[in-house]
Amino acid sequence: MNTVLLAVVVVLALVLLISLLIMLSRTRLTDRLLAVQLLGTLGVAILLMLAVVMQQRAFLDTALVLVLLAVVVTAVFTHRQRGGKS
């Protein structure tokens, strides 16, 4: 079973690589933000898979932290400042 799970992880990593290439090919900031979002979700999925494959419960905590702080990062990127630009 572990071999199957690991194969899925490899495919997810491949999707990660391709979405990174798409991100690099985009010029607009919002498109890049979207790509970052997809990369983040892929990262969480890979961590969850690795947690099972490697029998490391601590990776679940890492996934939780990633999910929670992802909102903070997006919020900081998209919020406007009063009076100033962006």
Partner: peptide
Amino acid sequence: KFILVWLLALVASAVNAHLI
């Protein structure tokens, strides 16, 4: 914990999508 991660990801994804 798995279910917790997913539930939080749902909330986070909704907030992110809204912000973007």
